[in-house]
């Protein structure tokens, strides 16, 4: 698994992981780094907006329930600003309404907690592959 995700020239591909649960951030980062990605982290919506501008990530992994603004707000804001990178929304609330709200805000992938970490790695991999494809 590691080989397959790490073998596609991922060096320099940056993923921003934002969640107010530091333990979840640590776990996600560890798994993504093992898969070969560079990771930066944030613990609130404000951090996320600042880090996207400052760190230029290729993909962001956003929790929904965070201190102001929420992950959905962050996503909507980024898309309104014309940001085209991949957005993976992760949330412990995963009803059809929650998924629809995330989609409306412009997210690409929704993962309901708890989920296998491989799902996160493959979602991030798909979004990076999509962005590398010529338009």
């Amino acid at each position: 698994m590691l080989g397959s995700t790490n073998g596609g020239g991922l060096a320099g591909r940056r993923v921003l992981v934002v969640d107010d649960d530091p333990k979840f951030v640590r776990i996600a980062v560890r798994r993504l780094e093992r898969a070969g990605y560079d990771c930066v982290t944030g613990e609130s919506g404000d951090h996320a907006l600042w880090a996207v501008a400052d760190q230029q990530p290729d993909v962001i992994v956003l929790d929904v329930m965070m201190p102001h603004p929420s992950g959905i707000e962050v996503c909507r804001h980024l898309r309104a600003d014309g940001w085209t990178g991949g957005v993976v929304v992760v949330s412990a609330r995963s009803s059809p309404a929650d998924r629809a709200a995330a989609e409306r805000a412009g997210s690409d992938v929704f993962l309901g907690k708890p989920f296998p970490l491989d799902d996160l790695v493959s979602a991030v991999g798909r979004l990076i592959a999509r962005d590398r494809r010529p338009a």
Binding site: L2, F24, R34, V90, A92, K113, P114, P116, L117, D118
Partner: peptide
């Protein structure tokens, strides 16, 4: 709904820790 949400968050961490350890 709220209770399920609160239970899923520690479960997500628990599952992640076990996956990383197993890896």
């Amino acid at each position: 709904d709220d209770a399920a949400h609160e239970l899923r968050s520690p479960l997500a961490v628990l599952r992640g820790e076990l996956e990383l350890t197993a890896d």
